[in-house]
Amino acid sequence: MMRRLASLKFAAVLCAFFAIAACSSNDKSGDEVGNAEPAKPGSERDFIVNVGDRIFFPTDITTLSDAAKETLRRQAAWLKLYPSVKIQIEGHADERGTREYNIGLSARRGSTTKAFLVSQGIEPGRISTIAYGKERPVALCDAESCWSQNRRAVTLITSGAAS
């Protein structure tokens, strides 16, 4: 309740994102979002819809914004509820950088994200990371409105979720 505003804002961003993500068929989360049924607690969908699976970064920045930390705190709380869940954090960059540097940049986003979750009490062994650089955009226009969605770190559940 105390973070109402922030949450609302986040939800708005999330909705916008899902509208786009729903189009990308290779995104597992995307398929499930269209589903109208309430998410089962402890499921991937529960995590994505009720917690938020991704955070965003400004250009060439790898530190966490307040909104991002907020999301990660919720993620940490959820992960504590379901201790058998393992995750992988995908770091991404937008396409307005060079390939190799962007891989490094997205890796740094991933490790910053992981470090924060660990600081929130999540066992490091439950978290792996991978960096995609600019190779996996979710929004495709040539404008900041898309690039800002691509500069992201996505928490992916790799095992242990309720189905």
């Binding site: 190799e100 891989i103 490094g104 740094r108 490790s111 470090a115 991978i130 960096a131």
Partner: peptide, 27 residues
């Protein structure tokens, strides 16, 4: 961890690259 940005040395005997070690913040 991750290795990337590879290139050979001029004699072809070495590969030079970036390594992002697990647990390391940077490449």
């Amino acid at each position: 961890g991750m290795t990337f940005a590879p290139r050979f040395s001029p004699d072809g005997r070495q590969v030079i690259m970036s390594w992002q070690r697990d647990g390391d913040g940077n490449a």
